[in-house]
Write a protein that binds this DNA or RNA. Structure first.
Length: 703
DNA sequence: TCAATCCGTATC
DNA sequence: ATACGGATTGAC
């Protein structure tokens, strides 16, 4: 059995009787003598007998290395970065060896390592340091971060023979992709020479971004440096994987995602950690990949919410990669069709340089975008359009575009119909009895309350006095049905949820998709229609506008260029800044505008915020104990719904009393200070066994 | 005077 | 989380 000969327990049994007798005789001795006894008994390794071990315990105040004695028999297996088992506070726990040292500062006697799990150095010094930085940034523990960074061991996979090393990569320097961007060739040249450029890249609509990232990785690999490339989901990863194979050839890269399955995931991880491959493409789990000689970190579409890790300490892939680039001094590319507010902040602070196409190029490649109002008056005038809930101009645009190719219709959310809103002011309709949300149980029945179940026969909108109601969310299913009736001779296909189309052919068809599930069309869509854009702006959340605009740009980028007749019709308010940015095809301008608004509203990234959630008294005492940096704002406490979407080990909130939440907000320059005092707070609280308070630094949403 | 129990603190 | 030590309490 594996690890049998690595068991320190056996060594205690093998202690000579003489030594045992001597040890027994030394019963009442000083601490110094006792320490000597223990060292002699365990027979420590000849050189570097002390292992500094990060133990896997969830307690914040124990998030530091502890020293253990390396038994001589384990000398060869206990290497820096390897997994061990140690006795800690009376129980056996897992740990990572951070380093081997000559002596310990610990005044007491050291316990021996119980066992070496494996001699595989799975925690590289760089990732060990990164986990420290991420934990500090998000006020979490290193053991929580390491759970995200190092996949579980798979012994069978670990024993598999190592693949032969591939010969050094020679980049043939094909600049066909990047030369279309002013400064693009300079960037790849800088990647190839080791100048480590940091770039916010706003891609041309319809551009083959995957090839761009693959070329950047190739330039970096040309000088022997590796890359970490992150994408939001599997569709994107399949595309990047293809591009990497084409540009780098076979065997130069691996895919790394959490849902590969334990064996395949560990196999990919080992290929990277052993240096067999230096290019990693993956979802957010790949951000921590221990790439040898890291030269480039890159991510595509950094505004996607899939980059927000749902497990503690909730790090964001973009922040992990940027911390990594900053710490190691490697190059970085933050790319997208649109631009996140955080990316805009990287440019305006001077940390990164922007890489955008020339204005003329953008005009030629972007589709023609128009906005059409969706007033009910306009719907009434056109019976055909009303049946499809489409303004007549959108209806006309679809009909004429279908003569030239496929048409994409983006419908805000999945499902048949959501709640009901006032047909005039669009205020959500609430139950007159209990203020619960109303819905239509069946088309011909009166509205019913989802909370108390009462039917509402007579109701006027408290906001505007209107009596009419309409569906708040049409949903892609009903949209597809209605479009099928409006265009009876055209095939209507759906792409959403777990039935996402890979791509569609260049034929006359209507594709109804939810945001993020839009399949690309061969040769591009003749037209893209964005339905009910106002709905995507209706949520009162931090990133509502940014998120909506990102989704509009991503869908619109699938249309053909203007000179090939590509059109985009957005149904919404022509004065809406996000839609105006789409008309001008100016994602950077919109991001700057949004950044200004966040600054004046004291929201991230201009401010650093932390959420403290827990039982009312717990949150109250936590806030009272917190060292608050200058300029701190405290918002709340407010009651929150007891919801824990995040799977896995979470601090269990008291469910006897409804939890509350406080928002702590500081100016950005005090962000590190805030994180420090949150770490201190969690340390004190866990040491004193106080009820848990969940801390989230810069959460993705503030709903 | 000693044992059972509680509380606080360290965990190598 | 245990685990241990010192203080505290209670019965002889």
């Amino acid at each position: 059995m594996a690890g049998r000969d690595g068991d320190a327990e056996e060594q205690f049994e093998l202690i000579p009787a003489l030594a045992q007798a001597r040890a027994a005789a030394a019963e009442a001795t000083t601490k110094v003598a006792e320490k000597e006894r223990s060292t002699r008994v365990v027979e420590a390794a000849g050189t570097l007998p002390v292992a500094r071990v990060l133990v896997d315990v969830p307690l914040a105040h124990l998030d530091r290395p502890f020293d253990y004695l390396v038994p001589a028999k384990l000398d060869a297996k206990v290497v820096p970065g390897s997994r061990v088992k140690v006795r800690f506070a009376g129980q056996d726990v897992d740990g990572f060896v951070l380093e081997r040292v000559e002596s310990s500062d610990h005044p007491g006697r050291l316990a021996p390592l119980r066992r070496s799990v494996s001699d595989e150095p799975v925690l590289s010094p760089e990732v060990a340091r990164l986990s420290e930085l991420v934990a500090a940034r998000y006020a979490g523990t290193r053991s929580d971060v390491l759970r995200l960074a190092v996949p579980p061991r798979h012994a069978t996979v670990e024993k598999e023979p190592v693949k032969d090393a591939v010969p050094p990569f020679r980049d043939e320097r094909d600049d066909a992709f990047w030369s279309r961007y002013p400064g693009g060739s300079a960037m790849t040249a800088a990647l190839a020479t080791g100048e480590d450029p940091r770039t916010v890249w706003t891609a041309l609509p319809g551009d083959d971004w995957a090839t761009g990232l693959a070329r950047a990785a190739a330039a970096t690999l040309g000088r022997g440096r590796g890359s970490v490339l992150c994408v939001p989901d599997h569709r994107d990863l399949a595309r990047l994987d293809l591009a990497l194979t084409e540009v780098l050839g076979a065997g130069r890269h691996v895919r790394l995602t959490a849902d590969l399955g334990p064996a395949e995931r560990y196999r990919s991880f080992l290929a990277v950690s052993r240096g067999a491959v230096q290019v990693v493409a993956g979802t957010r789990a790949a951000a921590f990949a221990p790439v040898h000689d890291l030269g480039l970190v890159a991510l595509w579409d950094d505004g996607d919410d899939l980059y927000a890790e749902p497990r503690a300490p909730y790090p964001h892939t973009r922040e992990v990669l940027l911390l990594r680039a900053h710490d190691t001094g490697c190059a970085a590319i933050v790319g997208g069709t649109s631009r996140s507010v955080e990316a805009a902040a990287l440019v305006s602070s001077g940390w990164a340089k922007e890489l955008v196409a020339a204005r003329d190029d953008v005009r030629a490649r972007a589709p023609v975008v128009s906005i059409t109002g969706a007033t009910d008056r306009e719907l009434e005038r056109d019976p055909a359009a009303r049946s499809a809930r489409l303004p007549s101009s959108a209806h006309v645009a679809i009909r004429s575009a279908l003569e030239h190719g496929p048409v994409l219709v983006q419908a805000p959310r999945r499902g048949y119909a959501g709640g009901l809103v006032c047909d005039t002011c669009r205020e959500p309709a609430r139950c007159p009895a209990c203020t619960g949300p109303l819905h239509l149980p069946q088309p011909q029945l009166p509205p019913r309350c989802r909370w108390c179940g009462a039917d509402t026969l007579d109701r006027t909108c408290p906001a505007c006095g209107s009596r009419g109601l309409r569906a708040a969310v049409i949903g892609d299913v009903r949209t597809a049905e209605e479009l099928g009736r409006a265009f009876p001779r055209t095939p209507v296909r759906r792409s959403s949820g777990d039935r996402v189309l890979e791509s569609v052919e260049n034929t006359s068809a209507i594709v109804v998709a939810t945001p993020g599930a839009e399949p690309p069309a061969q040769g591009g869509y003749a037209a893209v229609v964005l339905l009910d854009t106002w709905l995507m702006l209706a949520r009162p959340e931090l990133r509502t506008a940014e998120e909506a605009v990102r989704r509009w740009f991503n869908a619109a980028a699938l249309a053909r260029p203007a000179d090939e007749g590509g059109r985009v019709v957005a149904v919404g308010d022509p004065a809406q800044p996000g839609l105006q940015a789409l008309v001008r095809w100016d994602p950077a301008g919109f991001a700057d505008r949004e950044a200004d608004e966040r600054r004046s509203a004291h929201l991230p990234p201009a401010s650093r915020i932390a959420l403290l959630t827990g039982a009312p008294e717990a949150v109250e005492s936590a806030v009272a104990a917190l060292r608050l940096p200058p300029g701190t704002e405290l918002l709340g406490p407010v009651p929150v719904e007891a919801r824990s979407e995040a799977p896995g080990p979470e601090p269990t909130l008291q469910d006897t009393e409804p939890p509350v939440r406080v928002v702590v907000r500081v100016p950005r320059r005090w962000g590190a200070e805030l994180s420090r005092s949150l770490v201190e707070l969690q340390g004190t609280r866990s040491a004193r066994k106080l009820p848990p308070v969940r801390v989230q630094v810069d959460p993705y949403t503030l709903d």
